[in-house]
C-alpha cells in the first residue's frame, strides 16, 4: 500500500470516527446517567434533519449558515427534552430493558409521524455545495465536510469536557453518572441532571443531523437508524460506562469500518461489511463487556 493510500484511509477513518464519536457520546451520556439505551436517539438526528428541510423551505438555500445551525440544534433539543419529559420520566425507575422497549416505541412513533407528514420517500435538502468541495494534496483527497466533521467533533468534545469539569451542573452530572442514588442524597436534583443530559444529547444529535444531511444531501424517515446503530456499536466497543470510552469507541469503529472495507474488497465481500461489524459487537459483549475503556465499576454486568 502506498503512502498516499495510507494517508487517504487514515483521513477517511478519522472523519467517520469523528462522526461516530459524536453519536456515541450522546448515547453514552444518557446511558451513564439513567441506564437508558435510547433507540429514539436516532429520531433526534432525524428531527434535526427535517428541521433543515423546513428551514431551507423558508430561505430557498442554506446560505444563512449560523441561523440554520442554531435552528437545527434547537429543534433537536426541543425533541430531546420532550422525549425525556413525556416518555422516559414516567419509566425512569423501571428495569433497563423496559426503558429500552419504551425508547423503541418512541422511535417507531416519531418515524411514523414523520412518514405521515412528509411521506416515506427521501427528500433532497438544497445545501450550498459543501457536500462536494474537496482539497487535493498530492494523491490525497480531503473533503471539506470531513474537516468540518472533525472540527465540530473537536469543538463539541472540548466544550463538553470543559462543561463537565468546570461548571457546577457538569460536576453534578458526573456525580450522578457515578452513583445516581448517592448524588441525589447529597442534594443533586435528579430531574435537572437528567434534563441536562437530554439537553446535551439533543445538541449532539442536532450536530450529527447537520453533518448527516450535508453528507447525504437529503432526509428520509429512516435516516436516524444507521447513525444510531453505529453509535451504539461504538459505545459497546469503547465502554458503556465511560464518555472517554464512547469517543475512543467512535474512532476505533471508524478505523474498523474503513479497514473492513479495504480488507473485504480484496475478496469482493465489502457488501457484507456490516455483518462483520455486528459480529464484532457480539464478540465484544461476550468477551469484554466493559469495553476497551472500563469506566467505573458497573452496577450491572452489561
Amino acid at each position: 500500500m502506498e503512502l498516499s493510500e495510507v494517508a487517504q484511509n487514515a483521513i477517511d477513518a478519522a472523519a467517520r470516527g469523528g462522526f461516530f464519536a459524536l453519536i456515541a457520546l450522546g448515547v453514552a451520556m444518557l446511558f451513564g446517567i439513567m441506564n437508558l439505551i435510547n433507540f429514539a436517539y436516532g429520531e433526534l438526528i432525524m428531527a434535526g434533519g427535517y428541521a433543515m428541510l423546513v428551514f431551507t423551505g423558508w430561505f430557498f438555500d442554506a446560505t444563512v449558515w449560523p441561523l440554520l445551525i442554531i435552528w437545527t440544534i434547537g429543534v433537536a433539543v426541543v425533541f430531546a427534552l420532550a422525549q425525556e419529559r413525556l416518555a422516559f420520566r414516567p419509566v425512569r425507575n423501571a428495569a433497563p430493558t423496559t426503558m429500552l422497549v419504551t425508547s423503541f416505541a418512541v422511535s417507531v412513533l416519531l418515524v411514523n409521524i414523520t412518514i405521515a407528514v412528509w411521506g416515506g420517500m427521501p427528500v433532497p435538502v438544497p445545501l450550498a455545495g459543501v457536500t462536494l468541495d474537496q482539497f487535493v494534496i498530492g494523491d490525497v483527497r480531503i473533503r471539506k465536510l470531513d474537516l468540518i466533521t472533525l472540527g465540530a467533533a473537536a469543538f463539541l468534545l472540548g466544550t463538553l469536557t470543559l462543561f463537565l469539569k468546570k461548571t457546577s451542573s457538569g460536576i453534578q452530572m458526573r456525580a450522578a453518572a457515578e452513583n445516581f442514588q448517592m448524588s441525589q442524597l447529597l442534594g443533586v436534583a435528579a430531574n435537572r441532571v437528567i434534563a441536562t443530559a437530554f439537553l446535551i444529547a439533543g445538541i449532539l444529535a442536532g450536530s450529527v443531523g447537520l453533518i448527516a444531511v450535508a453528507n447525504r444531501g437529503g432526509v428520509s424517515p429512516g435516516m436516524g437508524l444507521f447513525p444510531l446503530i453505529f453509535g451504539l456499536v461504538a459505545v459497546v466497543i469503547g465502554g458503556m460506562r465511560s464518555l472517554v470510552g464512547a469517543v475512543v469507541g467512535g474512532f476505533v469503529l471508524g478505523g474498523l469500518v474503513v479497514g473492513l472495507e479495504q480488507g473485504l474488497a480484496t475478496y469482493d465481500l465489502e457488501r457484507f461489511r456490516d455483518a462483520f461489524v455486528f459480529l464484532a459487537v457480539i464478540l465484544m459483549l461476550v468477551f469484554r463487556p466493559q469495553g476497551l475503556i472500563a469506566g467505573r465499576a458497573g452496577r450491572e454486568r452489561v
Binding site: 428495569a95 433497563p96 459497546v236 457488501r271 456490516d274 455486528f278 459487537v281 457480539i282 463487556p289
Partner: peptide, 18 residues
C-alpha cells in the same frame, strides 16, 4: 443478561438481515 442481551440480539438481527 439485560441490556447486553438486547443489543447482542439486535446485532444478530442486523447481521442476518445484511
Amino acid at each position: 443478561n439485560g441490556l447486553a442481551a438486547g443489543i447482542a440480539t439486535l446485532a444478530m438481527l442486523f447481521a442476518v438481515g445484511v
